[in-house]
Design a binder for these strands. Structure first.
Lengths: 340, 340
DNA sequence: GACTGGCACTCGAGTCGAGGGAGTGCCAGT
DNA sequence: ACTGGCACTCCCTCGACTCGAGTGCCAGTC
């Protein structure tokens, strides 16, 4: 049996009421609050069908209905329009982000803003190195056998690394190295650098090859292996809203998951261009997050994507509002990066 | 009436048992578990005195006793020896920290280690800029009117900042600027730099003064105003151990406090050399943390202090063990920084 | 055929009271 | 100064009970 329009309408009403009140919703209350034009008894029949199809369930006999993960999914896919943000919200976003002084600050402000607007836990990935390009490489002598390698990416991000040299090297030699390395790598996408680094070693004179090899290995680490994606997190206190009811009684697994950067990166890092991804409850691969939903999207200057951001909350979440906010914030951050 | 030795012994027993079991401890159980050599009735009398003096209290009549903040304080000050760490723990610390590849990594590993060993929330302050010295300043031309300023501190920390120049500047001029700036500032403590930066402006030739002034203002921001102390945090999931019992029922205020970097900096940033500071419950100035205790200390290469670290947990905490761990970790991190 | 009103039924939440037990305070005795 | 004994307090648990929201089903109506 397929679902006719009214049944869908009933599902929508259940989701909206449950999200708003946090209480199982019964047929009578539903008819009162929404203009469905039918009696509670009819709604009950619809509910029975919806339950059979797995979209809602009863916490116990003789309680109201609660949406299942599948119910939320249907709601998100077919029943909700993304809410437009109010002008006030837009202004708040703009004003909040406008004051940022550098990349770190942008990320921090963004994550706080997201947490505040959605009242959920917010996660923002720093602009990823591998999707950006080398702007400059700097070598700073620290002692005769040690260098500090500093890489500056075009997103404004900086990475540094210590290099131990096999033999004492003069300042002039270091300058020389720097010139060579920059000539080869400046402007290249990080992802494209490995063969170039190899070429640097191959092309260098025999007496310098050893030193260059050393530098090259650190370069590779810094440019590639160090896909070392950093994250910012905010709003964990929001997990305690709604008491112990959400997250089936224990925040513990959620807090644990939030501590694992790898997990978070998985959650918000895997994004296709201009899509907003919504993972609801069981759709999360991480067991600890089976009671949570994640709304994530990518951001970046123009249409390229240099990182992900998103929010995490209980499955009982205001999806339309959250999706709208996440998208809007991502767009503003992208614009900000583009100006740079 | 002053407290004789046995009463103190009773207090210690109460603290230890309560910390271990999380349950109010009664006179009978106390006599059974500790060799006090007296009867429950005697212990009861002692308890009555301890209660009168404010060191313990009863959650309700006819329940066992629980230490008050003052009780923990007395315990920490007079009744506990700092536990020595087991060799296994020492090895764990060493092994865990040894693998660190750079400063970021050191801090991350440290904070995780602390959280794991103490089973509490751990906080580590990044080596503070203002207490360290300039190792090198690098100027990277980005366009004819823009520079990237990169400052490398002797702790290995790097700060970058964009500089907008008032007029187009050639590469040679930039090199020149770099030389001048480095000659003046390299090796200086950050805290001592402001007058030197001013001098740089005063001493520069009229045609370059404008540019130098621009650079100087950013320099000051980077070196000083940007006391922008960063933090790492781990182990928030540990707050959920012990159920909702600790923290008088709600994690919310604690989580909120943990999100405020300013608060955390206050907690662990204010340290005198080689002291371990213990703040118990009410002793915390932050209202949100009245139900928590904080153990913090400073760390740094040798005897200088470049940052703070510590842990936060319920007042019902294993103080001797926690203090020992915090100290040990701080020492190891200090050694690690000294090697650099 | 779809919707409605009515009705019996289920089951959770809240209330009440009794019983048990841990723990106390006090007092008289050693 | 310490101890054993004893009465008392109060929390916790459990079962019985009630209340009410909500359901499922069925017969009736448009």
């Amino acid at each position: 049996m397929s679902l006719d329009d009214r049944k869908l309408e009933v599902l929508r009403a259940i989701v909206e009421d449950y999200v708003a009140t946090q209480e199982p919703v019964g047929s009578k209350a539903l008819v009162e609050r929404h203009q469905l034009g039918v009696s509670p008894a009819t709604v009950r029949n619809d509910m029975a069908v919806l339950e059979e199809e797995g979209y809602i369930r009863q916490p116990h006999t003789s309680a109201g209905r609660v949406p299942t993960d599948a119910g939320y999914r249907l709601f998100v896919d077919r029943l909700s329009r993304v809410k437009a943000l109010s002008p006030a919200e837009r202004r708040a976003i703009e004003r909040f982000l406008a004051g940022a002084v550098d990349l770190d600050d942008v990320v921090h402000r963004t994550v706080r803003l997201l947490a505040q607007l959605t009242r959920q836990v917010a996660v923002v990935q720093y602009p990823s190195l591998s999707r950006s390009a080398v702007r400059h490489l700097e070598l700073v002598p620290i002692s005769s056998t040690r260098l500090m390698l500093v890489m500056i990416a075009d997103t404004g991000r900086v990475e540094q690394r210590l290099v131990e040299l096999p033999a004492p090297t003069s300042n002039d030699d270091v300058l020389d190295l720097r010139r060579t390395v920059n000539a080869k790598l400046t402007g290249e996408k990080l992802a494209d650098t490995p063969p170039l680094v190899q070429a640097l070693v191959d092309e260098s004179s025999p007496e310098k090859r050893n030193t260059m090899a050393c530098l090259a290995s650190v370069l590779l680490e810094t440019l590639v292996e160090r896909s070392d994606e950093r994250l910012a997190l905010a709003g964990t206190a929001n997990l305690t809203r709604g008491g112990v009811l959400d997250f089936q009684g224990s925040l513990r697994p959620v807090l644990e998951a939030l501590e694992e950067e790898v997990i978070l990166l998985k959650l918000i890092g895997e994004v296709e261009p201009s899509t907003t991804r919504v993972r609801i409850g069981d759709e999360n691969e991480i067991d600890n997050l089976r009671a949570a939903s994640v709304v994530s999207t990518g951001y970046g200057p123009g249409t390229t994507i240099v990182g992900g951001l998103g929010v995490l909350g209980p499955t009982r979440m205001d999806y339309p509002g959250t999706i709208a906010t996440v998208r809007a914030v991502a767009r503003y951050v992208g614009d900000l990066l583009a100006q740079n």
